[in-house]
């Protein structure tokens, strides 16, 4: 059974095609990541699935309901957390939650068990206006409000953008718990380390899905050998590597640069020997496993 079915979905804003023939399915209870650059159509897809935007072509079903014909049913069964903070800034934490519960014909107490772990962190600030909360707290409140009617499917559009590492880790811990409750989660993120936490990832660019696979499969499909190199001056090394015909691609990854080699027959020893002739300073190079971020960059540059 699929909670979300998207078939040849299309959305166009004047001459700008935002979503172009996008198709994917999300299994019931699955955590599915939609990963793509800004402007790749992620938000338009979310808005169409949340029945806030009418598609120009194709079809989409959520919980078996058609996004156009049965929009009322869908609104009862999904929770949506938009990319920008969309709660009432001049209502307090508690008032916002109460408001959303009432709209969905429920009460805070009825589904309290679902939001309890998140809400206890907000409770000390329950009388504060939501506009005066920090980024991490706003995001927790938005999640609570999206969950208050115990939705079957949760749409999270870049929930952790602008949020620090510690809060991001906490947020994903919460998502794990929601998954245990059987909630289907469709989430988008620009953080590649978070993508790894999804069961399957759809990589999206220019409104089309480039690939849909579990993170491990995406990594296994990486077509080249990948090496990590470092030296004392990484900026200098970066520009030097870009000039070398031997190098297929070079990208910074924290304390290393990740490189691929044009000639696939070369061994690590060959590469090291060649680089030693080219680079007038000591360096360290090792063969490594690609990360999802390497794969994403490779797919985008194709």
């Amino acid at each position: 059974m699929h909670s979300v079915v998207v078939e040849n979905l299309r959305k166009q804003y004047k001459e700008n095609v935002a979503v172009d023939d996008a198709s994917f399915k999300v299994n019931e209870g699955e955590t599915f990541g939609l990963i793509g650059p800004d402007g790749s159509g992620k938000t338009s897809i979310f808005r169409m699935l949340a029945t806030l935007l009418v598609p120009d072509g194709g079809e989409a079903h959520v919980c078996g309901w058609d996004v156009v014909k049965n929009y009322k049913e869908i609104r009862k069964s999904v929770g949506y957390m938009p990319g920008t903070f969309s709660l009432y800034q001049d209502l307090t934490v508690e008032e916002n939650l109460h408001f959303f519960a009432t709209i969905f014909n429920t009460t805070i107490t009825e589904n309290y068990s679902l939001i309890k772990d998140i809400y206890v962190q907000l409770e000390p600030f329950k009388n504060r206006r939501s506009g005066n909360l920090s980024g991490g707290m706003k995001q927790k409140l938005a999640l609570c409000c999206a969950l208050i009617h115990r939705p079957e499917v949760l749409f999270l559009d870049e929930p952790t953008t602008g949020v620090d590492t510690v809060s991001r880790k906490e947020f994903w811990e919460m998502l794990k718990k929601l998954k245990k409750e059987g909630i289907t989660i469709l989430v988008s993120t620009p953080y590649m380390d978070e993508a790894t936490l999804c069961e399957r990832i759809g990589l999206i660019q220019k409104g089309r899905l480039l690939s849909i696979d579990p993170p491990q499969v995406i990594i296994e499909k990486y077509p080249k050998a990948l090496y990590a190199i470092k030296s004392h001056n990484m900026i200098e090394l970066l520009s030097a590597l870009r000039e070398l015909p031997l190098i297929g691609s070079v990208h910074s990854f924290g304390e290393h640069h990740h490189i691929t080699i044009v000639d696939r027959t070369l061994t690590l020893l060959d590469i090291r020997a060649t680089l030693e002739k080219e680079l007038p300073y000591p360096f360290q190079i090792d063969k490594i496993e690609p990360s999802v971020e390497d794969c994403f960059i490779q797919l985008m540059e194709k």
Partner: peptide
């Protein structure tokens, strides 16, 4: 102030190239 928040992996790296150039 968080110049690369929400930006894709390739553009983030291009942004850092601009930073290196400024330096």
């Amino acid at each position: 102030d968080e110049p690369t928040g929400g930006v894709d992996p390739i553009t983030r790296r291009q942004f850092w190239d601009l930073i290196y150039e400024a330096v």
